[in-house]
Amino acid sequence: MIKVMIAKPGLDGHDRGAKVVARALRDAGMEVIYTGIRQTPEQIVQSAVDEDVDILGISILSGAHMKLIPRILDLLKSKGSNMPVFVGGIIPKEDAEKLKALGVAEVYGPGAPTSEIAEQVKRFVEHSST
């Protein structure tokens, strides 16, 4: 059983995308913990570690991704976690490449089919060490 957290950092309140992905992952047989909107990186990371999820999904539309996502990755590391992280949202290609270089497993644009996300999430979890 895969346990995944879908978290929504930043100030925008649009969580339709996050909820669509959360439901798709549930329908793919996963246990999905949703954090709700406007979460700080600290809240997200502490929640993911406390829930001991297998993988963390970040949904972000606010444009602050280059600030928030590296912060989340750093906090995870500082808590001794190496859980995989994936990102969904409107993110320019070059930023997506930078985030992947920092360790993000994959970045999904608004049009990414949810079935594909679910398949890949399974694969990321299988290939991660914990």
Binding site: M30, Y34, T35, G36, Q43
Partner: peptide, 15 residues
């Protein structure tokens, strides 16, 4: 599968 949503209401206490 399951959608676990209770935590949303308690997130102000997450840290």
């Amino acid at each position: 599968g399951a959608l676990l949503g209770d935590r949303v209401r308690m997130q102000s206490h997450a840290t």
